[in-house]
């Protein structure tokens, strides 16, 4: 028997720990996929459970808004000037601020969170409907951004060459745009365009569609960069070579082989941008380019409240609190998802 000479041993060691049948013991601990591990961690994470419950609750409020408002009794855009006893809700002498009620906001057993000054709209109903605008725009924008970013990133990373060069330049330019300003400037322009060219009335369906499109369109480039980088490295892995040598086309490889490996990244990115889009919707509506009157949006409510809050900060408090709770819940869940998917977390 000769001793293993240095020249004869492979550079990264002679031990054969790779090609192997799994033992039962190993299977118990190591045989779980990343998804299973992440799920198990999430289920143990109290913060994740609480924030997920909160989010489901807010989604339920948004979906069931018409039902809830039926129970509370006042539609969100209906002006109210008298209560059921025929008393004035608003004090015309004082510029239309609510007459009485708890904290002078018109709160009563009929109007649970009071009424707005001047037009007497029910604050509770507007708050409930505001959840719709917020979630619809944020989730819609996220879907657009994630789909665009994933497809463009994968295409750039998979085909490389001039396709990659072209798409990467587009990403560079998009990332150099002053995004908020541009969204601000573009939203009314697109709404006008759609109205004049396609005859779509400038109502709130259109406005929300435009918001979703604009937020998504300016949000994909960053994700595309990440996806491109990951695709570049995934496509060098052996299972891709194997699939291609068996005759798999680019479409199959991209969507069946690369995409599943990107899912953790996409999940983390999506949970990161949902709260920023909720904030963005509120900001745009606040600035007057988002959701229009009379549709309720938390951003609009804050904007309206800015005229009255010095007298009664409750008008600011309700939409502000909803916005804060929603964003916080998504941020908390996002953190938990990211930690759960991070193979290093909790191990080092």
């Amino acid at each position: 028997m000769t001793l293993g000479a240095t020249e004869a041993s492979p550079p990264d060691g002679g031990l054969p720990s790779e090609h192997i049948a799994e033992t039962a013991e190993a299977k118990q601990i190591e045989g779980r996929s990343l998804g299973q591990i992440a799920w198990a961690r999430l289920k143990k994470d109290k913060v994740a459970l609480i924030s997920a419950t909160l989010i489901l609750l807010i989604i339920a409020i948004a979906v069931l808004a018409p039902l809830i408002v039926k129970i509370s009794g006042f539609p969100p855009d209906q002006p109210n000037f008298k209560d059921s006893n025929g008393n004035d809700l608003l004090d015309t002498q004082l510029g239309g601020i609510p007459a009485g009620g708890l904290f002078g906001s018109g709160m009563s057993s009929e109007h649970w969170l009071g009424v707005e000054p001047q037009n007497g709209r029910d604050v509770f109903a507007r708050l409930v409907y505001g959840a719709r605008a917020s979630l619809l725009v944020a989730l819609g924008g996220t879907v657009v951004a994630v789909v665009l970013g994933t497809v463009v990133g994968m295409v750039a990373g998979y085909f490389r060459g001039w396709v990659d060069a072209l798409l990467s330049r587009v990403m560079d330019i998009l990332l150099s745009f002053p995004t908020l300003l541009f969204i601000l400037a573009l939203t009314p322009v697109i709404a006008d365009r759609a109205q004049s060219t396609f005859g779509i009335p400038d109502n709130n369906t259109l406005r929300m569609g435009v918001l979703i499109f604009v937020l998504g369109f300016f949000g994909w480039a960053y994700l595309a960069r990440i996806v491109r980088g990951q695709t570049l490295s995934i496509r060098e892995r052996e299972f891709i070579d194997a699939a291609r040598s068996l005759g798999a086309g680019p479409g199959y490889v991209i969507f069946r082989q690369i995409l599943p490996n990107l899912i953790p990244t996409l999940l983390v990115y999506a949970t990161l941008i949902i709260p920023t889009y909720i904030t963005a919707e509120a900001a745009l509506s606040f600035l007057g380019v988002g959701v229009k009157e009379p549709t309720a949006s938390w951003g609009r409510m804050i904007s309206d409240a800015s005229n009255w809050y010095e007298g009664n900060p409750l008008y600011l408090f309700f939409p502000g609190a909803m916005l804060f709770i929603t964003v916080l819940a998504f941020n908390l869940l996002g953190d938990s998802v990211r930690d759960a998917l991070d193979p290093r977390a909790g191990r080092s």
């Binding site: 606040f286 804050i302 916005l323 941020n331």
Partner: peptide, 22 residues
């Protein structure tokens, strides 16, 4: 940090004005 990230600028601004100025 989580609180700060989630606090909407629009609300914070008015809140500060209300507390410190008004």
């Amino acid at each position: 940090a989580l609180f700060g990230v989630s606090f909407p600028t629009l609300v914070l601004g008015y809140l500060l004005v209300f507390v410190f100025i008004v």
